[in-house]
Design a protein around this nucleic acid. Structure first.
Ligand SMILES: [Zn+2]
Ligand SMILES: [Zn+2]
Ligand SMILES: [Zn+2]
Ligand SMILES: [Zn+2]
Lengths: 159, 159
DNA sequence: GTCGTATTGATACGGAGTATCATAAAGCGA
DNA sequence: TCGCTTTATGATACTCCGTATCAATACGAC
């Protein structure tokens, strides 16, 4: 039996084996009456095997050509369900297309290397606290936020 | 002569009259060899008169129908130039289209009411400081970030 | 197996933004 | 004020990402 760092502490790096993610996910799918169809298995296999954040279009390209006929809408439906339920996190890239990363349901942020695309995932966040004071003073209640960090990873430091 | 709160302090609300923004912008356009064409004047008039953040498509709808023929690419070119040079800020809305707000060149964030669309603009930000420690420990240098806050404004507090 | 329901794939559509390129018009100096 | 050079524009068409529709299919509970 495996245990997980469930409520992550501030700044803690998320560490999660693909197999662990997959096991928990399939459990949840049963609990929520989600059928394990051929198509979903292929999508989940692909995502489980992914070594880095991926875009929906990458999935489409790979699965529609190699693994038999899987339609674009179905792939987007699967990805969107995983995102909505928190099993993958959506990563925003300003001008570019979204990418996704395996996660356990929860709250995370990403640090994306703009040179090589490497993405670090962080659990926990106290970011809203900083602005909260000013916002409260204006009667604004924060319910969510969007935060992505961009920079260079350890391997891409040379100017 | 008007003075501005140039380097904004943390959490300070940006206060800027449309006329002031316009004056400074036209100055900058001259300095940077940007021609003041009929089309740009119409676009700037529209943005100067805007009372809330706007989308590029709104501009297209308004200007192409009412003010004579202005092409969509031209509008997008103008908006993109203003964004690149910092005279407007791009506001991300997760799933939905971008909006833009008048700004002076600098660094800002937005708090968007998901009920009525009201957008507060904040100058200054210490948000990266919170995560920086962990990131530095991983050899990651932060060069930029994307942050939007979502919630309900003072007028939209009722359930 | 049978059956009801969830899911799929085909198709087509939509919004947002961009590439191209010949034409027009700013701005500047004569 | 008249060219002239350079920049900006508009028409057109296109790409990319994502979604609506809906008849046909396949889960999986029984
Ligand atoms: Zn890198
Ligand atoms: Zn957060
Ligand atoms: Zn509101
Ligand atoms: Zn910031």
């Amino acid at each position: 039996m495996t245990t997980l760092p469930q409520p992550l502490t501030k700044g803690e790096l998320v560490s999660l084996t693909p197999q662990h993610w997959r096991t928990r996910l399939e459990q949840a799918m049963q609990d929520e009456q989600q059928r394990m169809t051929r198509t979903r298995r292929l999508v989940l296999d692909w995502i489980t095997a992914a070594e880095a954040p991926f875009s929906a279009e990458t999935l489409v390209d790979d699965l529609t050509t190699r693994q038999g006929i899987i339609s674009r809408p179905t792939i987007y439906r699967a990805v969107e369900w995983l995102r909505r339920t928190g099993w993958i996190g959506r990563i925003h890239h300003d001008g570019a297309e979204h990418t996704y990363a395996r996660l356990l349901p929860g709250h995370y942020h990403h640090a994306v290397c703009t040179a090589c695309g490497l993405t670090l995932v962080f659990g926990g966040c106290d970011l809203t606290q900083a602005l909260l004071h000013t916002l409260v003073a204006h009667g604004f209640t924060v319910q969510g936020h969007l935060l992505e960090l961009y920079g260079h990873c350890a391997n891409c430091q040379q100017t």
